[in-house]
Nucleic acid binder design. Sequence first.
DNA 1: CACTATTTGTCCGTATGTATG
DNA 2: TCATACATACGGACAAATAGT
Lengths: 262, 262
Amino acid sequence: MSSAIEKLFSKRDLELMQSEAPTPLYFQMYSLLKGRILDGSIAHGTQMPTEQQLAEMFGVSRITAKRAMDELAADELVERRRGKGSHVTHHYEPEPVQAPLVGMLEKLASMGRQTRIKVLDVEKVIPPADIRSELGLAKGEKAHRVIRVRSSEEGEPFAYYISWTVGIKKGFSKRELETNVRLDTIKENGLILSKVEQYLGADAANNEVARELELKAGAPTLTLVRHSYTKDGKLVDILFCQYNPKRFQYRMSLSMDDYHSE
Amino acid sequence: MSSAIEKLFSKRDLELMQSEAPTPLYFQMYSLLKGRILDGSIAHGTQMPTEQQLAEMFGVSRITAKRAMDELAADELVERRRGKGSHVTHHYEPEPVQAPLVGMLEKLASMGRQTRIKVLDVEKVIPPADIRSELGLAKGEKAHRVIRVRSSEEGEPFAYYISWTVGIKKGFSKRELETNVRLDTIKENGLILSKVEQYLGADAANNEVARELELKAGAPTLTLVRHSYTKDGKLVDILFCQYNPKRFQYRMSLSMDDYHSE
DNA sequence: CACTATTTGTCCGTATGTATG
DNA sequence: TCATACATACGGACAAATAGT
């Protein structure tokens, strides 16, 4: 009768625990419970299942269940008391969002000045095979890879970029990339870009992207892939963007004959 | 020297290894290497770094590096030979996608004929509070809601639509919606649309959408929200679209002055 | 005031996995 | 390959705090 959260974990949750990665059981349990507390599924003040119950639910020993709970207590998400049980101390507050989103959209017109670029990595490395073949590189050949994150004035990151460039001599410098537009640097290398094609889609954020964009791993992101060609039709630059859709959306105004876009 | 992949791992990769989760080092190494082999960064036949080199690169013991390589060998991604070193046996094959994707894009111009619409629901119902306030409706007032799915000629569903419409007298009929463009029907009701605004973003598929678009629940979808206004600035139609990003993407061609779009 | 059931805290021994030199 | 150290996970046993009868 103790805790009111018998139906909190689906079979899926439990199945997901025996994952392919050899992550410790206690940590998987801890992560699952932590997520439920942080997203408000288990409200403040709620009594958690006992160690015994958790052990049975997850099919582990009490020691393991206890370890998971101890980690939660160390995070100050729950409070544990002998004879009383463990209770959620964390206060869930729904985010009062949606407003900053429109604000972001309006800033887009003059993006350059009103956002900040953080350069995570600038290196010449061997690209994945699909990139390599698109750029027409030989097997061991390297390309300039730049990884960046763009944030709003308020310091909220909303875009994650990976670009691959070939055919430039000078290469990029970190300082340059932080202040200038990357395609300008390409032009200064003597490349004249003519055609640009962009594809908008959606993809899940991997761990790296999720961390940089303040999302959960696997969260939907708006994606943009841009191919830049020189006059003679040679592809010299590929840009992959992933956007936090809470903070950035594309706005388009269409003429009335274009409504086949549905 | 031995292996031609000195520049395969950036400092960033190595820093990312000490992640927050207590995942074993050998497994993090194994995952990283596996990813590079599967995405073709390390091509078939390439010699991998020696255990000693890997150990130094990643700052771990040789045993740990060996364990990572052994896991790769167990997956039959590399072959290990005493005195020869480890060589990649996996053949990278680029997925034969992208073709149907571009094919889909080309069909867009004359979408009406080359795709099929399934009408799931046509009803006049009370809208959710946010929709209601956007459309300027009183509390109990209803709006025309239409739910549809669009599929390719081959029967692959790629778009899920929910639309809310006010100010029309005739209403929609199922047969009409299956053959005609919805906005045409609105026009026949005497409404003259002038301004249209669209927002592209990303969102997770709920159960309903996932089922219709043949995705898993929670999978990323490309989303489009369209607001249609009459000449006097009144919002009369809201359309929510969700697209399966494997089967549909937006293509844009930009002029070269627009590259602030990064 | 016992007496009891519940629940967490602590300790034991053992086995296995991870990581080092 | 070996010896070593530490973390993980198990089952079991008992102690200590809490709450109700």
